[in-house]
Design a protein around this nucleic acid. Structure first.
Length: 884
RNA sequence: GGGCGGGUAGCUCAGGUGGCUAGAGCGACAGCCUUACAAGCUGUAGGUCACAGGUUCAAGUCCUGUCCCGCCUACCA
């Protein structure tokens, strides 16, 4: 007797199978293969530590696709790797250094980078082990890291290429500056957060006049850098003041009053203080009116000398307090009004960003964005769900220059060299030999590139670009990109643009954007919110397959998908159910082994076999179609329903009956069906399916001797034609069984009590079918004493009744029946039937329905009504009899 | 200010191009240790499909408006 444990223990089996797959090279992609290519590049996890729940979802879905396509016979490549994640990783390291009582400036750039590489080696290793724990079938021989030599060469090549095309340039412009990270960041990295602030109303005295101009500002400290006041040119209130000057309070600087269309007369006081160095709009106004740009901040967010002696050295926030105090003291402060408004925060460190004028490197993304839009419109890239396409277009159409330089250390240093003699700029793969001016002395730009620049090259840099590699020839463009919708702009859009810019071809054909995992309150799960589930802990508690099943099962196309604990619990129960179904089959196979020379002849198979095979075919069709359309939840639900509610609930019960009558064929068929289902389920639940698949006997195809060594490379099941006749017959039988069980349950017939079943049906064919099958099947589901089937039968006294169209079931329950309960039961049925009758009649009474609805719909409706009317009449007769 | 998504059973969600008597999981209730599984089995209850109009023979599904919830996006100081 097989000693399979009663309870499925994932810990026991998961490790060994991953090892097995790996050592057999099942995940390795060949460029020499003649099979069609199917490639996915992993969204490289940041080397910031461990994988979170979002990674688990993202990678589970990718693994489902890859495993499914591998089984379908594609030459699959899942390119794995990690991202250096510039700023975030540096922040983590800086925190570590602070704990050690040092800092990055203290240890210096070189030492800092060395420490970062150490961290990378540990972190990437841990991430890889987690992905393997999750079962991901990546091609680990190809693992990449964004700072690898090859990928760094790709970055330099792309940069130089785009620079030479004039798409990358250096400029002084107002950018978002993070005083905490001491670097410029792009708009996307700035997150507007609503905070409770104030409107400070301040008076500016107009020179040579006894009037004052009142303005309102949320940032009073920036007045120290004001270089004008602005009013709207058409504003009657202030027209006479334009071109006069005001005296800037506290600093006693004279600044002009200017007229600019930007000012909104309706808003605040209709007068605006202008600080060109510290506000984007003011910056624009300043350019229009040639105003002085007066920078009052140091890069780390403190006041510099330009702010005035009284304030120099203060932080932004201390300065605000002091300025307000001073304004009040000197009588310039009119009032403070509470005001809630959005303030930009750096998404990596949560510091309030400072708009600052700065010399930075930019990429003019407009031309590539235009090409990306055109490519998408031509269908070269497809977004799923489709609604993401419009988000993509909207972003692309309004795209702004991308600031790509970061004043940081961890990343790709800009391939820009300045001549020490003449400061001429050269973009090159390495240090230039000689400058035009004759000098041979250069210094490289200190800045590194935005991490997303290298991420944007990922689909081809990982395949060896700029070399013309076999990988690129075979796998580029890749088939699908799978990621969360939240990085559509950050990453997906940039990959498309850079793919077009560097490869002249989009990087992937389809983008599948899945939802983000939310907690039960609908909040996105994140470590910072403390509401996230730890994947490793979850895997240890429930098992990988249960977890993966839950993730697939919740992957509906909504933006935030909840993952309640109960869902994972449900996955675990499902895994156990499968395990036990297999256990039952395997245990019995020991007693009834499958004969070697056995051949499957479908025509001879008993009804329940024909039925389950037809249902299996339907399941294969649905699951395949669902996978093709990225409906992972449907794959999961379809397989769950088939396995549990058709295979286990019905087929295995039928098979038990056969076994008691010493008919082991039913068991052999069960093993065959389970073998097929293990294949279907393999992409979602790789470990469990492999374990069971290996234990099951495999029907050897006599024409080929090479049987797959693993379900991971077994062919994906091909559907043949369904068997509607078997399904219809079985449906009738199942309905009869359901009704008998229902009667027993509702009338509290003791479990052990055997009952007589009287069935009357006017239809000879149905009687025939029931005669053939019912006594074979019924004992598996309920205790019966005898079954009588006839064209007409008297209703026995004290019997319960069920009607299925023209068919009637009577179960005599003398001494057991509770007549009141039976009356209540039938009344309820009657009410429901009457409701349905009325609805159907209403439809059919409408002459337009008969006239305009399609023939088959009308026929169906008529048949329905007919059946309902018969049921209704019979129920009425029975109720009348009960009453008498 | 624009745009998008959602409102279906107590909870979380399915319901491609309108057409079987609106489904599932979880939970609830009742009964079962039936020799694969109590992480199981059987039965039961529970829904004016947010609201109001409209199109249609037919609307959970399409259109318009309204009300909530969430998100994305935008330079109102």
């Amino acid at each position: 007797m097989t000693s399979l444990p009663k309870i499925y223990d994932p810990q026991e089996i998961e490790g060994k199978w991953y090892q097995f797959w790996q050592s057999n090279g099942f995940f390795h992609a060949e460029t020499t293969s003649d099979k069609p290519a199917y490639a996915i590049v992993i969204p490289p996890p940041n080397i910031t530590g461990s994988l979170h729940i979002g990674h688990a979802l993202d990678n589970t879905l990718q693994d489902c696709l890859i495993r499914w396509r591998r089984m379908q016979g594609y030459n699959t490549l899942w390119m794995p790797g990690t991202d250096h994640a510039g700023i975030v990783t540096e922040l983590i390291m800086e925190r570590k250094l602070a704990e050690e009582g040092t800092s990055r400036n203290e240890i210096g750039r070189e030492e800092f980078i060395e420490r970062m590489w150490q961290w990378k080696r540990e972190s990437a290793g841990y991430i890889v082990s987690q992905l393997q724990q999750l079962g991901c079938s990546c091609d680990w021989d190809r693992e990449r890291f964004t700072l690898d030599d090859g990928l760094s060469e790709a970055v330099r090549t792309a940069f130089v290429k785009l620079y030479n095309q004039g798409l990358i340039y250096r400029d002084t412009y107002m950018v978002n500056w993070c005083p905490e990270c001491n670097t410029a960041v792009s708009n996307l990295e700035v997150e507007p957060v609503e905070i409770d602030g104030n409107f400070y109303h301040i008076q500016y005295p107009v020179i040579d006049s006894d009037v004052v101009l009142e303005i309102a500002t949320t940032r009073p400290e920036t007045m120290l850098g004001d270089t004008a006041l602005a009013v709207h040119p058409d504003d009657d209130r202030y027209q006479n003041l334009v071109e006069k000057k005001v005296l800037l309070p506290l600093v006693n600087r004279e600044i002009p009053i200017i007229a600019d269309e930007y000012v909104d007369t309706e808003f605040g006081t209709g007068a605006l203080k202008v600080t060109p160095a510290h506000d984007v709009n003011d910056y624009e106004i300043g350019l229009r009116h040639d105003l002085e740009q007066r920078n009052i901040f140091t890069p780390d967010g403190h006041m510099n000398e330009a702010a005035g002696e009284a304030y120099v050295g203060l932080s932004r926030w201390d300065c605000r307090k002091r300025v307000v105090e001073d304004l009040e003291k000197e009588g310039y402060l009119v009032k403070i009004v509470p005001h809630r408004h959005a303030v930009g925060h750096h998404d990596r460190c949560n510091t309030i960003v400072e708009p600052a004028i700065s010399l930075q490197w930019f990429m003019n993304v407009r031309p590539l964005a235009q090409r990306a839009i055109e490519a998408t419109k031509k269908g070269e890239v497809k977004f799923i769900p489709e609604r993401e396409t419009s988000r993509f277009f909207h972003w692309m159409e309004n795209i702004e220059p991308w600031p790509i330089s970061r004043q940081r250390w961890w990343g790709h240093r800009l391939p820009i060299w300045y001549c020490d003699a003449c400061e001429k700029i050269t973009a090159a793969m390495g240090t230039p030999q000689q400058c035009e001016c004759g000098s041979t002395s250069f210094h490289q730009d200190e800045d590194v590139l935005d991490t997303w620049f290298s991420s944007g090259l990922w689909p081809f840099s990982t395949m060896g670009w700029p070399q013309e590699t076999d990988d690129l020839k075979t796998f580029y463009p890749t088939s699908v990109l799978v990621t969360g919708w939240d990085i559509l702009f950050f990453w997906v859009a940039r990959m498309i643009m850079l793919g077009l810019g560097c490869m002249n071809e989009v990087p992937f054909r389809t983008v599948y954007l899945h939802g983000l995992i939310a907690d039960e309150k609908g909040q996105k799960m994140s470590k910072s919110k403390g509401n996230s589930i730890d994947p490793v802990e979850t895997i240890e508690t429930y098992g990988t397959d249960a977890f993966r099943f839950a993730l697939a099962n919740i992957s509906t196309p909504i933006p935030y998908v909840p993952l309640p604990e109960s869902q994972i619990e449900s996955g675990k129960r499902f895994a156990n159910k499968i395990w036990n179904a297999a256990r039952f089959i395997l245990m019995n196979l020991e007693k009834h082994p499958v004969p070697k020379e056995r051949r499957t002849v479908k025509e001879d198979a008993p009804l329940e076999v024909q039925w389950i095979q037809s249902r299996l075919i339907k399941t294969i069709k649905t699951a395949t179609d669902a996978l093709e359309n990225f409906r992972f939840y449907e794959v999961a639900q379809t397989l769950y329903a088939f396995l549990w509610h058709e295979f286990c609930d019905w087929y295995l019960e039928f098979a038990k009956q056969r076994l008691t009558r010493n008919k082991p064929e039913a068991l052999w068929y069960a093993a065959e069906v389970l073998e097929q289902v293990m294949r279907l389920l393999h992409p979602i639940m790789p470990f469990l399916t492999e374990e069971i698949w290996q234990l099951l006997p495999h029907t050897k195809d006599s024409t080929s001797s090479d049987e797959p060594a693993s379900v991971a490379i077994a062919p994906w099941p091909e559907p043949t034609t369904e068997n509607p006749t078997a399904e219809t017959t079985m449906a009738t039988i199942m309905e009869v069984i359901d009704n008998i069980r229902s009667i027993r349950g509702e009338l509290n017939v003791p479990i052990g009590a055997a009952v007589e079943v009287h069935i009357q049906s006017p239809n000879a064919e149905i009687r025939n079918r029931l005669n053939t099958y019912l006594d074979q099947y019924l004992p598996a589901f309920t205790k019966v004493e005898s079954i009588t089937i006839a064209e007409t039968l008297e209703k026995p006294p004290n019997s319960a009744e069920a009607v299925i169209g023209a068919l009637t079931i009577h179960i005599p329950l003398a001494g057991v029946i509770d007549l009141e309960a039976e009356h209540a039961r039938l009344t309820k049925r009657h009410q429901q039937t009457t409701k349905d009758v009325l609805a159907a009649q209403k439809t059919l009474d409408n002459p337009n329905f008969i006239e305009r609805a399609p023939e088959n719909v009308v026929v169906q409706k008529r048949e329905l009504l007919e059946r309902l009317l018969i049921e209704q009449k019979k129920l009425e007769r029975s109720l009348a009899m009960l009453a008498s």
